[in-house]
Design a protein around this nucleic acid. Sequence first.
DNA 1: CGAACATAGATGATGCGTCAACTATTCCGG
DNA 2: CCGGAATAGTTGACGCATCATCTATGTTCG
Lengths: 152, 152
Amino acid sequence: MTRWLDEREQATWRGYLRMQARLQAELHRRLQAESGLSIADFDVLVALTDRPDERVRVLELATSLEWEKSRLSHHLARMQRRGLITREECDDDGRGNFVVLTDQGRAAIERAAPGHVESVRELVFDTLTDDDVDALARITGTVGARLDEARR
Amino acid sequence: MTRWLDEREQATWRGYLRMQARLQAELHRRLQAESGLSIADFDVLVALTDRPDERVRVLELATSLEWEKSRLSHHLARMQRRGLITREECDDDGRGNFVVLTDQGRAAIERAAPGHVESVRELVFDTLTDDDVDALARITGTVGARLDEARR
DNA sequence: CGAACATAGATGATGCGTCAACTATTCCGG
DNA sequence: CCGGAATAGTTGACGCATCATCTATGTTCG
């Protein structure tokens, strides 16, 4: 009664999984080697530099990254240990905390970003045609919408 | 001189990353809930059932999964603890080990597979047009080839 | 007011992934 | 054969992700 995948679907799916895993690994490997940052560190730091005052509430950060708050909490603890961020108390809300970018954190992201973008360009956009990019945007949009529905 | 991503590329890249993370999480969540298996467990078990005698040398398995041998070694230890696989010595090569599917492992994968395939179908292939699937296959192929070049 | 409840966030346990180091065997050149 | 290099696989440390639980503060409503 299971509707299995036909040959073409199966090949496509396997191809996607394989590409996805390899791309992620390669981007992570390069970023790590060049800057000592993980992709996760990078995402946090980018989210912080996007803020006008380079500070943001923990839960707001979790929401914008679509991370579980506990994941973020653990991750921030490690980043703080490495001096990439600090924390500040929140006056309005005694429970709240701000995550604040440190000078070291800003330096790290500024050092890391160009190489990372270059990697993405080299591995992805330089090889894709305009039509490919359109198709990719369309496909990820479609599947994304489906995931929204599935989320009930 | 960094060539940054233009607006369209950036939106596409972010869309891809977001979709990829959510799809992976959702598939993992469902598989875990329905069968207690992780995607990694699933991949190992599938690789084993693909073998005529449901046994394979550790390193050969690592190669076919494109996993580091140490990752596989750790993972097999956990799977063995849960009774999904066993190990057998290799007569030809005193260093070698076979990974062998247990009855419990076979039962687990047979129970898990239909639901997992159904999820992939529902979240991906049911929403994509034939052209989308073609495009996806083309894109993953192109990027995959690029990764091959980059790897050396 | 104050008790129930909700929210912000941290914490500890456990599974997973990577790296470097290690053991045991096999292979290979002299 | 013998000693060194290569190979098969494991191990331990550490960073990372999830889950359940905990603390502290805020909010709501009788």
